[in-house]
């Protein structure tokens, strides 16, 4: 657990936006240990997705470097699986072929054919192997996207608000799925989200970012033991603490309601 897998060193990223220079990320330093679940939260525009894209190799920083196992990240690689917000599945492929896409792209499909069925099992989509993306629900589609990234055995799984567009029941369902996967695969996961509950429910550490310029304002350790209960005392206390960080919780105690 203590071995560092990912190091982010002095990252700066600016964008030119019609004459203005926007500092999307400023002096980001952070490292993640093997097997850790880290969430990055913050309001929109704080650069959390930019940071995740840099880790994926989909974007380049002006200065600084990101190291995976001591190796500098320059381009996308299946070692860093990426789950997008929505609509990244290939509509022209069935569920099973979407999951197999990574194996096919890397020309290792034949020797790994059996893995496709394993991952369909893992995400619980048996019976939907031959369905096309438009025939399944949004929650199912995101599970397929997760399996598609996982089949490459990534060292780090990058999750870019994968549950952002889902209803709260489906969201909770996928969150539990992620914890289950984490248990079995011992995968390192980095989740970008704007949902405090989600971050608290899943993470070992929560990175709080603030915008203009995008930087890390605080890193919070979450010590609540698994399995966590969304209504548990520790959880609610942690939630309140986080809300206060964002100045969202009122200082005055609210009257209690029976609901």
């Amino acid at each position: 657990m203590s071995e560092t897998i990912l190091e982010i060193k002095n990252i700066n990223r600016t964008y030119k936006d019609e004459d203005n220079i926007v500092e999307a990320l400023k002096d980001i330093n952070f490292s993640i240990k093997k097997g850790e679940f880290v969430s990055i939260i913050g309001s929109s525009g704080c650069g959390k997705t930019t940071l995740l894209r840099l880790i994926a190799g989909l974007d380049k920083a002006q200065s600084g470097e990101i190291l995976l196992d001591g190796e500098k990240i320059t381009a996308p690689d299946p070692k860093r699986g990426y789950v997008f917000q929505q609509g990244s599945l290939f509509e022209w492929l069935t569920v099973q072929n979407n999951i197999a896409a990574g194996l096919k792209a890397r020309h290792i499909y034949k020797e790994n054919k059996h893995k496709v069925a394993e991952y369909i099992d893992l995400i619980g989509l048996n019976g939907f192997e031959k369905a096309y993306p438009h025939q399944i629900s949004g929650g199912m589609a995101q599970r397929v996207a997760i399996a598609r990234a996982l089949i490459n055995d990534p060292e780090v799984l990058l999750l870019d608000e994968p549950m952002g567009a889902l209803d709260s029941f489906t969201r909770a369902d996928i969150q539990d799925k992620l914890l289950e996967i984490r248990k079995t695969n011992n995968a390192t996961m980095i989740l970008v989200t704007h949902d405090i509950d989600e971050a608290l429910y899943l993470s070992d550490r929560i990175v709080i970012m603030t915008p203009r310029p995008g930087k890390i304002s605080e890193v919070v350790d979450v010590a609540i033991p698994h399995p966590r209960h969304r209504g548990g005392t520790e959880f609610l206390a942690g939630r309140k603490k986080l809300l206060e960080r964002f100045h969202l919780a009122s200082a005055q105690p609210q009257p209690e309601y029976n609901i």
């Binding site: 989909l58 299946p78 990244s88 290939f90 990574g102 598609r148 490459n152």
Partner: peptide, 11 residues
């Protein structure tokens, strides 16, 4: 997004 997804998958 489709190209990016394919690239992160090793395409």
């Amino acid at each position: 997004a489709k190209f990016e997804a394919a690239r992160t998958l090793g395409g």
